[in-house]
Write a protein that binds this DNA or RNA. Structure first.
Lengths: 119, 119
DNA sequence: TCGGTCTACTACCATATAGTTTAGTATACC
DNA sequence: GGTATACTAAACTATATGGTAGTAGACCGA
């Protein structure tokens, strides 16, 4: 099985795996913000927050434009759609009805196994 | 802003951030597998693969039961639902109509911010 | 029951990447 | 120029990833 290391999906999921970065995305969902605005609510130094923004940029979840000394960041949600699409392939596994159906099938199968019809 | 480090969501997204682990989940979506079966298609040693399974267990995406010398793994998809639910909050951002509208609004707002009206 | 094999684990090492802090650079404003 | 603001770069620690070597337990055939 070929494992495409450092693919786009890797970067997106990795970007989402840190609460600070998820907090940044939530802030950006409201609208454009500069780095200081993004950093101030986080309990860490400015450079740490800046690096988290960089990770989000690497995952193409954030785009930045420089305006004077400010770096204005904007949400780019398209990669999130890809992440959801990948995860959705397991939807049937977490839906209760399917699980119930699964259980029923298993029950029938094991009955079949225990009491095979004579030919 | 309080950032709940090492939360459940952190572990789930981190677990999904590696192609080998995603490949393992895809295998398990078909049905129960033991570690050898999970490891063999991956281009890495058995211990490396075993560690990936352990990461998936830590995220509660995989449950293991021991049967003789085999460790049988089964998919637990519920945490994937949580991941999707978190991501879905951005759905409107990746849907085209909203993006166009959003872009227009942001353009107006940032103009306002960079060139504040004199009172 | 004994040895061989299969399945999986642990321990340890090397390397790469993540995450954070301290120190430094550039831009705007007075 | 001087100073505050906005951000970057370098450096350092912690964690992740993947390898090798050795161990333990279950199964199987002679």
């Amino acid at each position: 099985m070929v494992v495409d290391r450092s693919s786009r999906l890797d970067r997106v999921f990795h970007a989402l795996a840190h609460p600070a970065r998820r907090a940044i995305l939530r802030q950006l969902s409201v609208g454009e913000r500069n780095l200081s605005e993004l950093a101030s609510p986080l309990q860490m130094t400015f450079p740490a927050a800046s690096k988290h923004v960089r990770v989000l940029e690497g995952a193409r979840l954030v785009r930045r434009r420089v305006a004077g000394r400010q770096h204005l960041c904007r949400l780019q949600a398209a990669p999130l759609r890809d992440a959801v699409l990948w995860t959705e392939q397991f939807r049937r596994h977490w839906e209760a009805r399917f699980q119930a159906l699964d259980a029923l099938l298993e029950e029938l199968k094991s009955e079949e196994r225990l009491r095979p019809r004579r030919s």
